[in-house]
Design a protein around this nucleic acid. Structure first.
Lengths: 173, 173
DNA sequence: GCATATATGTCAACAACACTGACATATTCG
DNA sequence: CGAATATGTCAGTGTTGTTGACATATATGC
């Protein structure tokens, strides 16, 4: 576990340093999403479908409210995408046991296959960037990226998947 | 200038490491764009306007084709946004001197003011993340982010603004 | 147990932003 | 001069987001 305490260094930041940061985010995100977008288009889906499939795969049994909190979109927007994914057999909904109002979501085998296919290029891209940059750079990347995320979500993102059973603590907006 | 040669380390990458990378990009981008989006909404603009204003400010005198190559959208999409920005006095177009078919774009004073206002939050967010993570982490962040960007754009992104007068070398797709 | 709150879903209308395809104009280049 | 290039425009379409209103099932508090 790395030391995550804030550095509080007197880092001198020029305007160009900040601009570069802005641009790195723009270009990296642009290129990171391009290939999955192309694959999605072929099967009549969009980026929103990818997001839903990804996070349902990441948190099997996640309920709708939790997914909405991650995506930060309205339930109407999610509903369209989710309904399509359910109808076409990529996701299935089961009534919650402790709270039967909830719909717990999980991927079907077909859904898991699509998720793997879509993320494959992204994983390859990340693996290549990590390998080229080296372990120390990866650690720095993580620290900065976590710092860019809204404080209230940092813990959740940083937590290991195994340590995050069914999104135990739900944080409200 | 840091050593940017590929490390070729035998970095052991677990599935969770790659998943975390994917998620860091999703969450960071989500939160990085949220506030500018809110401000844009108030004046009837969207994220596409921000991008156009940003890159015209970044490369004063950029022409339409170069801007299209950065944004990776169609000219019809850009045209709508750009036309609005011109009509409302944020951007002005001047005929190119060496090639008079070109429209060289630049921000008006109003445009520059909007750009500063929109980017202010993003700069603050980046500065805070950089300061909290420390200089070594920032260097690692840059290396990994550059590695995520399509190879053909890495040089351009990494170049200092001052060293990049009017997008000297145009790289075609 | 009843009233209220919560989790979810649905219908309808709308806006932003991307796309394709077709066509037009001005300018440059061989 | 003819072809290629830079740009612009018109028209139609699809995805993804929004707001607002309303419905149902279930849980929770008094």
């Amino acid at each position: 576990m790395p030391d995550l305490r804030p550095g509080l260094q007197h880092l001198y930041l020029r305007d160009e340093d900040l601009r570069l940061g802005i641009e790195l985010l723009f270009y990296a995100y642009r290129d990171f999403t391009a290939e999955p977008d192309r694959m999605l288009e072929e099967i009549g889906f969009g980026r929103a479908h990818h997001r839903a499939i990804y996070f349902v795969g990441r948190y099997p049994g996640i309920n709708v409210g939790e997914l909405l909190a991650i995506l930060r979109i309205t339930k109407q927007s999610l509903s369209r995408v989710l309904g399509e994914l359910v109808r076409k057999g990529y996701i299935l909904q089961r009534q919650g046991t402790s709270d039967r109002r909830q719909r717990r979501l999980e991927l079907t085998e077909q859904g898991a296959a699509l998720e793997r296919k879509l993320s494959e290029n992204q994983r390859r891209r990340i693996a290549a960037a990590y390998r080229a940059a080296g372990p120390a750079a990866v650690e720095g990347f993580r620290r900065v990226m976590l710092g860019l995320i809204d404080e209230r979500d940092r813990r959740k993102v940083a937590a290991e998947p195994a340590k995050t059973p069914p999104l135990a603590a739900k944080q409200r907006a």
